[in-house]
Design a protein around this nucleic acid. Sequence first.
DNA 1: TTGAAAGCGCTAACAT
DNA 2: ATGTTAGCGCTTTCAA
Lengths: 341, 341
Amino acid sequence: MAVTLKDIALRVGKSVTTVSRALHDFDDVSPDTKAEVRSIAEELGYIPNIHAQRLQSKHTDTIGFIMPTFGPRFSDPFFSEFLTGIGNQAAKMGFDLLVSTRPPGTMELQTYEKNVRSPRVDGFIIVRTRQDDQRIKFLSQMKFPFVAFGRMLDHNDYAYVDEDGEYGMGLITSHLTDLGHKRIAYLDAPGHFMFAHYRRQGFLDGLKENGMEINQDLMVTGDMTQRAGYQLATDLLTQESPPTAIVACNDLMALGAISAAQQLGLTVGKDVAITGFDNIPLAEHCHPPLTTVHQPIYQIGEMVCEMLIKQIRAESLEQEQIILQPSLVVRQSTLGPINTL
Amino acid sequence: MAVTLKDIALRVGKSVTTVSRALHDFDDVSPDTKAEVRSIAEELGYIPNIHAQRLQSKHTDTIGFIMPTFGPRFSDPFFSEFLTGIGNQAAKMGFDLLVSTRPPGTMELQTYEKNVRSPRVDGFIIVRTRQDDQRIKFLSQMKFPFVAFGRMLDHNDYAYVDEDGEYGMGLITSHLTDLGHKRIAYLDAPGHFMFAHYRRQGFLDGLKENGMEINQDLMVTGDMTQRAGYQLATDLLTQESPPTAIVACNDLMALGAISAAQQLGLTVGKDVAITGFDNIPLAEHCHPPLTTVHQPIYQIGEMVCEMLIKQIRAESLEQEQIILQPSLVVRQSTLGPINTL
DNA sequence: TTGAAAGCGCTAACAT
DNA sequence: ATGTTAGCGCTTTCAA
């Protein structure tokens, strides 16, 4: 039922080989034959069988993206935006995108292995790098192409794009100390995430540079969800001497913290300042709008994807390492009073 | 470099065929040979070449999901949750997931066509059905397997799961009229979306049943984002006789509406009631928590995926059509006053 | 400028 | 219980 080269060859009265070469625009095929082959192919609606092509060519023209999900109610705006970036870029460059959803762990690594060995994909995009990232170690060791959004703690001899989280969080911290805040709480993410590591470092360094002490009681850790932000902030704000500012290491937790503060009757921006990191679309139209650090997630998705495909095509391990400088977006969550009506 | 059946055959001293059959546990292979083949395969780390298998078998063990995105800053919690559902289910049933990102339109349809003809996938999952859905028409006409999350206006002779949006929105409407609201605004989504169609119908019917008039001035349409909800609600609430309640056809717009109301100095739940639809994770931990209709998005993703794979495996077009009854989740956005501290 | 033949790795029909 | 042969649809030598 599907149209094959053979069908075209029969119609044109030439061999399968010639048809194949005509379609690939080889220059040892006569213009007439090319034209005829093309028109028949068009007429028949020929589309090459990719499995035959891939069996032959040893590459899949597919990139793999294994999403590190957390539980069923997984809903992180970061991922839809990032996915759209790599999806669009891959399509633009003629690549397919194979997606898996796996919580970090053993099964996740097995999925990488399976996809490498099958071989289902030509390369991987890795996100949310970890301190000792098994995914990166495995792929490096297999010499399998990949590009990561994020660095590792050591051995950064691979292609990556990363934001300067230290710098970004430094901007936030200075912004708050400039406003006169003395008791600043920090909503951290689990320590093995590299983004959390850099952002935390930026916060701690920022405090130091502005001559402030680090108060361990105000450093708490959550799972990056709004729910976690809500609960941690509730705890912080109901203690005997609550912080005057809460710095969350991502927007989702900041949003939760805002809700918590409001639930406690506080006016965010006036009674307590709250900041995020990422500048997800939600940050702009919440109330009050969230002061945060902007990261061009969609563009990073595109970049990472393009770098990967170039790496695959050149079949070289040309290293590219890019650190992006994020920018501060000041909004009303640190500026109140808000109700100016 | 990759291990093939031939490598194993050489080691075992049997033919490739025998090795293949041993690995597939055929019963015309001696137990001894089976054991030996398996242990060698294990030792060598054999993984079958899927392209060879697929070329042979005519199926891809892959399902396709073409995400209807809207612009680069696409970030709809619906999709990450739904994607996780289908991703996990597909993995559980041994299927791969091929994802594309395309705004609705001609290119989108071409992507379907390409994937059908290559053939890259064995079936598709379709979401956010449209009134006259070209995707469904195309796949039906090609007799290509698919399962949709959503119905069409006519010709619903295909497998789908859908929520009863009319019923769900009826629950919302009754809830608000029970609370005594007389001027209820409605934030609609573009008319061609079927989910918008049913929900709108549920709202209009609900008003009628509760003996209320429909006020066309209070019916406005947005693009389902928080930003749209924010702007529409701002317009509604600043007119001479503003509504006392705003019903949004999805949570994201409701969240925007809440921010707009608060920006205007109103207390949501007391001065104005606001409702959503979907019960995304964000709805629970915003402030005030959002009254909405719960849809088990993750589970629907799983269901739809399972139905598709069953349909593919049976190679029959066994029809299955499921309508889920959603439930009302009443929270403080319709109940205030909130600041009880 | 074109075609015949081989082979990618696998499965299946048909021997033996 | 095992091997031989053929073929999936394509690309790529090598000859003509």
